[in-house]
Simulated scan of single mutants.
Amino acid sequence: MDKIAVLIPCFNESQTIEKVVSDWKRELPEAVIYVYDNNSSDNTADLATKAGAVVRHEYSQGKGNVIRRMFREIDAQCYIMVDGDDTYPAEYGKQMANLVLKKRTDMVVGDRLSSTYFDENKRPFHNFGNCIVRGSINRLFKTDIRDIMTGYRAFSYLFVKSFPVLSKGFEIETEMTIHAVDKNMRIENVIIEYRDRPEGSESKLNTYSDGFKVLKTIGKLYKNYHPLGFFGRISTILILASALLFLPIAIKFLQTGFVPNFPTLIVSGFIAVTAIISYFAGLILETLTEKERQEFEFRLQVIENLEKSIKNIDFK
Rank of each mutant, 00 (worst) to 15 (best):
M1G: 08
L7N: 01
C10V: 12
F11P: 00
S14Y: 03
T16C: 01
S22F: 04
K25E: 06
K25L: 13
R26H: 06
E27K: 11
L28N: 02
L28W: 03
P29I: 13
E30K: 05
V32K: 15
Y36G: 06
D37E: 02
N38V: 05
N39W: 06
S40E: 07
D46M: 08
T49E: 13
T49S: 15
K50N: 11
A51N: 12
G52L: 11
A53S: 12
V55R: 00
V55I: 13
H57I: 06
E58M: 08
Q61L: 09
V66H: 01
V66W: 01
I67L: 14
F71W: 13
R72C: 08
I74Q: 05
D75N: 14
A76S: 15
C78H: 00
V82Y: 00
D86Y: 06
Y88S: 10
K94G: 02
M96S: 02
V100H: 00
R104W: 01
D111H: 06
R112Q: 09
S114E: 12
S114D: 11
D119Q: 12
E120T: 04
E120M: 06
N121A: 05
N121S: 08
R123M: 03
H126D: 09
N127Y: 04
F128A: 14
V133A: 10
S136M: 14
S136K: 08
R146T: 07
D147S: 14
D147M: 03
Y152K: 12
Y152N: 03
A154D: 05
F159H: 04
V160W: 00
K161D: 01
F163I: 03
P164C: 06
V165N: 03
L166I: 11
S167A: 14
F170H: 11
I172W: 07
E173S: 05
V181T: 06
V181M: 03
N184I: 06
R186I: 10
N189K: 14
I192P: 00
E193F: 12
R195V: 02
S201A: 13
T207W: 12
G211I: 04
G211P: 04
T217Q: 13
K220F: 04
K220L: 05
L221E: 02
Y222R: 15
Y225C: 05
P227E: 04
L228F: 15
F230W: 12
G232S: 13
G232T: 05
I234D: 04
T236W: 14
L238W: 03
I239K: 15
S242T: 14
S242P: 06
A243N: 08
L244W: 08
L245N: 02
L247V: 14
L247T: 15
P248H: 05
I249M: 11
Q255L: 10
G257E: 07
P260M: 11
F262T: 15
P263T: 13
S268M: 07
I271P: 00
A272Y: 15
A272G: 09
V273K: 11
Y279A: 04
F280A: 10
T287R: 15
T289H: 08
E290R: 15
Q294W: 09
E295C: 06
E295W: 09
E295V: 08
E297G: 08
I303L: 08
E307N: 09
I310P: 01
I313S: 08
